[in-house]
Design a protein around this nucleic acid. Structure first.
Length: 488
RNA sequence: GGCGCGUUAUCCAAGAGGCUAGGAGCCGGUCUGCAAAACCGUUAACGUCGGUUCGAAUCCGACACGCGCCUCCA
């Protein structure tokens, strides 16, 4: 099997063949830095992080570029609101973005360029567009003439007529066609500006991505990604700019992730129904959020809710618990594994098939949700084997070691299992304690009281304490070694 | 209005002509003073109506419902 990816441009899954064998150039639209990131940004970040990781896992040398758009109307507005300047706002939210993405465990892209560091490239492309008749000056601005580019809207599969029908497009007096868009905006008083052949001003939205991708990946490159909402106008306009200026294909494979929904409705700034990443990470572990994102295919909508996050946590906990159980297996001798029981043979079979099943899923348009299946399968087999062999499990350490390595290998691609299992499990518990009305001391005290009651066979009192704690959200776990507890 | 997408069991969610997805839950079992937890086992589905086919969640058509884009958005 070979990697196949869904290309928005053709609307089909295609065999992935990079421009240069063994190498991949990938550009993903980052963020416009004017506010904290929400869960939608988290999804895009995680999805393309996994794509980046998988391409490397598949043996490609990947150049991954993810930009910061650090000059834009919204940044300027924000700066005006708070009485600072665009640079202050941009730098603050670049810092916040980096923090959020690091917490979600994203690997650093190869390059993370900023729009304002690429003014020369931006100006060069606009000049080329004017020369080739794709752009025109008007009232201090420069606009792209969409009618000059026959392929315009090929990505979203529409026509200019479709777009205008019933649409609320204002016919700005500066534009020749209502769909024309700004490449360069003349600066108004008090606004940041850069020198250009068309006077002082700043770039329009879209052009920075054409400039930065060309700078680091060339005129034609393999993968361009972003959220579905960028298909139009952002990516459509990038195509018009880059292909208009260079006269050659811009991007070979367009990848777009689906939205995060709240109650089946798109999460967005304008609807005001969004959660920031940092808000969510107050109640949920970052890897849980990551796991939740990976539990649906990247192009499908993903419904965000506490219930779904809780389920994701339960799933991830199952995986981590298995890893922790493997760590507790007593070390056997270094000799060959003991003869396996039927249950052991079954597990060996799962171990043998694991990698090909995992790769098959990921090769099919990065289907991480499907790739999770073999992980859980192997976990079930492991639990079963461990339960059966008990103290003797150490005699099969080669098999178990191989199994653990495979789990970690898959975790490396998905960005999971980055925390030592016992520590992760302890972290989940600690987070739960923070939400309780009882202190750890009070809980321990009650448990001690219960132990005494039970020792004197006063089960009524013992059960009373157990119910009391349960009502407070504390779940007791009795075992031969004594009583421990968990937050429910 | 134009264009596009989706509808899978109690819930979440893969699958895209014949091949066990998976998770949570329910139920049964092991364990336990009884429970809980953990572990094991197990259950069930393809929106509706037609069509193509030896065979359809899967392909085609109609309908219903939901959603998205057409305006800043990951």
């Amino acid at each position: 099997m070979a990697l196949r990816v869904y290309n928005t441009l053709t609307g089909e899954k295609e065999l992935f063949v990079p421009l240069v064998p063994g190498k991949v150039g990938m550009y993903v639209c980052g963020v416009t830095v004017y506010d904290y990131c929400h869960i939608g940004h988290a999804r895009a970040g995680v999805v393309f992080d996994v794509i980046f990781r998988y391409l490397k896992y598949a043996g490609y040398e990947v150049t991954y570029v993810r930009n910061y758009t650090d000059i834009d109307d919204k940044i300027i507005n924000r700066a005006n609101q708070e009485g600072s300047d665009y640079r202050t706002v941009a730098d603050r939210y670049i810092g916040a973005f980096d923090e959020d993405m690091a917490r979600l465990g994203l690997q650093k892209p190869t390059v993370e360029p900023k729009a304002t560091d690429h003014m020369d490239g931006i100006i060069t492309i606009i000049e080329a567009l004017i020369t080739r008749g794709h752009a025109y000056m008007s009232g201090g601005d420069v606009y792209y003439a969409v009618e000059s580019f026959p392929d315009y809207l090929k990505l979203s599969g529409r026509t200019l007529e479709d777009m205008l029908a019933g649409a609320r497009v204002e016919t700005g007096d500066k534009k020749r066609h209502p769909m024309d868009f700004a490449l360069w905006k003349g600066s108004k008083p008090g606004e940041p500006w850069w020198h250009s052949p068309w006077g002082n001003g700043r770039p329009g939205w879209h052009i920075e991505c054409s400039a930065m991708s060309m700078e680091f990946l060339g005129k034609t490159f393999d993968i361009h990604g972003g959220g579905k909402d960028l298909v139009f106008p952002h990516h459509e306009n990038e195509i018009a700019q880059s292909e208009g200026a260079n006269g050659c294909q811009f991007v070979r494979y367009w990848l777009h992730n689906g939205f995060v929904n709240i109650n089946s409705e798109k999460m967005s700034k304008s609807l005001g129904n969004f959660f920031t990443i940092r808000e969510v990470l107050k109640s949920y572990d970052p890897e849980t959020l990551r796991f939740f994102i990976l539990s649906a295919h990247y192009r499908s909508p993903l419904d965000f809710s506490d219930q779904n996050l809780d389920e994701a946590q339960a799933g991830l906990e199952r995986l981590y618990s298995c890893l922790a159980a493997l760590d507790r297996v007593p070390v056997g001798d270094n000799g060959p594994d003991a003869a396996l029981t039927p249950v052991g043979e079954e597990l060996r079979e799962k171990v043998t098939q694991f990698r090909s099943r995992f790769i098959e899923a990921m090769d099919d348009d990065f289907n991480a949700a499907q790739a999770l299946g073999p992980l859980f399968d192997m976990v079930r087999g492991t639990n079963r084997f461990l339960a059966e062999s008990g103290e003797q499990a150490g005699a099969s350490r080669q098999l178990l070691g191989q199994l653990r390595a495979l789990l970690m290998e898959a975790g490396g691609v998905l960005g999971l299992f980055t925390v030592p299992p016992e520590q992760w499990l302890a972290g989940i518990k600690a987070a739960g304690v923070g939400r309780l009305s009882l202190t750890v001391e009070q809980i321990e005290q009650l448990i001690a009281e219960r132990r005494e009651a039970r020792q004197t066979k006063n089960f009524t009192r013992g059960d009373e304490i157990r119910d009391q704690l349960l009502a407070a959200g504390v779940q007791l776990l009795d075992s031969a070694q004594g009583t421990t507890w968990n937050v429910k």
